[in-house]
Design a protein around this nucleic acid. Structure first.
Lengths: 265, 265
DNA sequence: TCTGTAATATTTGTAATACCAATCTAGCAC
DNA sequence: GTGCTAGATTGGTATTACAAATATTACAGA
């Protein structure tokens, strides 16, 4: 049909750079990813810094804007870049955070149970608590203590209580002094927090207030162990606490709708 | 110069969109992501199953193929889908694996040290070893034992030895019986394995052979503790082993080229 | 009938273009 | 100075047209 207009390949490539007729120049988007990856790993592009505009990258790398965007979007999906419409594309900054979505999907696809999720949290947070007992700074301890205080103050408000509960565990992860551990704990925590769980906590059952007081007390004991620099005790208290939390859930139910295994194509 | 009186921007943005914890997804691509997410989370699409062709999704969702591809590529970058040129787009299958690249970038961007990476590995793998001591099946134990055997058999071949070392730790993570723990251990392990490390191991220093024999022996003791269902001992042996490995590295050097903090735009 | 192979169809990958939408910037009015 | 507006900059989406990899079908030959 439109055989006529197919002279399109004449100008866009920079003069002289003729596409090798042999090699298939695999993955244009990959070239973009490698280009940006090198900029970052070689330190020529730091956190928060802005990348060249897409149209400039088109000229620099020698691929179409379609491919430039494909590469940038892939890096953005991995949390390495963030893109602001009308403003620019930037290297991720702020506290190191790992996206929890891949883990959530794995949970749904493989039918991870809440019990497994709790077990993983236990393994991680016990380690974090142990590190916190050794490395926590004064302000870390203050942050942890504050959350315990607020927990006691909100035993009659399950939703508020849950917020401080989450922040308590976050504060411990941060107090570990190890950003990698903190990021991973954060990732797992986010992945295990489902909307239903929040909803469940809102349902104030008769025993709730007493339960929350008990929970707050366990948190208090974890804090004391960390404050006293007693690593084994911190690990034990954290383990006991998470085991107790687990018992309050029907932990063997899968995280989401069960996924039937599908036939391979 | 576009006429302002036209139909531009009648709808005041979508209301009440709670999701998208990650910045970078855009309106049209987001619709694709939500569409596929629902297919998966509701169990209508299982591991390994093929998605409709892009052009079909265009019709079903009502966005352009550009946006369909943007959404699919974002999910592929997160490891949720995989795309095969000429064949189709599929839901990820196989063993649950978390991409290690985001962690590598965090390491480069924030200047994580090897010491921190080792510490994180220690926290994780000590937990995994403890779980393995409680949950390991017969075939898990066999797999671990095999790797120890191969390690002893390759003390004169550092590169082969390293391969079995990696597989040993992988086998322990698998033996934990907890796929979440296994995935995370795997992610951190991959992120901490740099090309330079491999290269270093190849350089057979005079003391290498003796060192490797000592290392193999430590692995053997870990295996024995797990085989004997002795959780505390397994945790202790694993911790000692990783501490010893750490001492052999100049652990305070950053993982990659240091990244200078950049001015915010 | 079975098998290997070539033609054909299907499906993802890239390019080019045009325009929309959000943001930033500079200049002007007050 | 403040506030506003017009333009410039930059990312977002749509469309069209092919290219490239893979899957399927049809057919010739044993």
């Amino acid at each position: 049909m439109q055989q006529m207009g197919r002279d399109r390949n004449l100008e866009p490539r920079r003069a002289g750079v003729v596409v090798s007729p042999i090699v298939g120049e695999t993955a244009a988007a990959d070239r973009v990813i490698q280009y940006v990856r090198r900029l970052i790993l070689e330190g020529r592009l730091g956190p928060g810094q802005r990348l060249p505009p897409e149209r400039t990258l088109v000229a620099d790398i020698g691929v179409s804007r379609t491919s430039v965007r494909a590469g940038l979007q892939a890096l953005a999906a991995k949390g390495i870049l963030f893109i602001r419409h009308g403003s620019g594309t930037f290297v991720a900054d702020g506290p190191p955070v790992l996206d929890s979505e891949p883990l959530r999907f794995l949970a749904a696809l493989h039918g991870f149970t809440r019990r497994e999720m709790f077990e993983a949290r236990r393994a991680l947070e016990v380690g974090a608590a142990g590190l916190a007992a050794e490395h926590a700074k004064g302000q870390d301890l203050a942050a942890i203590s504050d959350e315990v205080t607020e927990m006691f103050a909100s035993v009659d408000d399950p939703q508020t209580f849950l917020g401080h509960d989450v922040r308590f565990h976050h504060a411990i992860a941060a107090a570990s002094g190890n950003p990698i551990v903190a990021s991973i704990v954060e990732m797992v925590t986010r992945a295990s927090l489902s909307r239903e769980l929040r909803w469940k906590m809102q349902q104030a059952s008769p025993a709730t207030q007493h339960d929350l007081r008990v929970a707050a007390d366990m948190h208090r004991r974890i804090y004391h162990a960390i404050r006293d620099r007693d690593r084994p005790r911190a690990e034990r208290e954290m383990s006991d606490h998470l085991l107790a939390s687990e018992r309050e859930q029907d932990a063997d139910r899968p995280m989401d709708a069960a996924v039937a295994p599908a036939p391979r194509p």
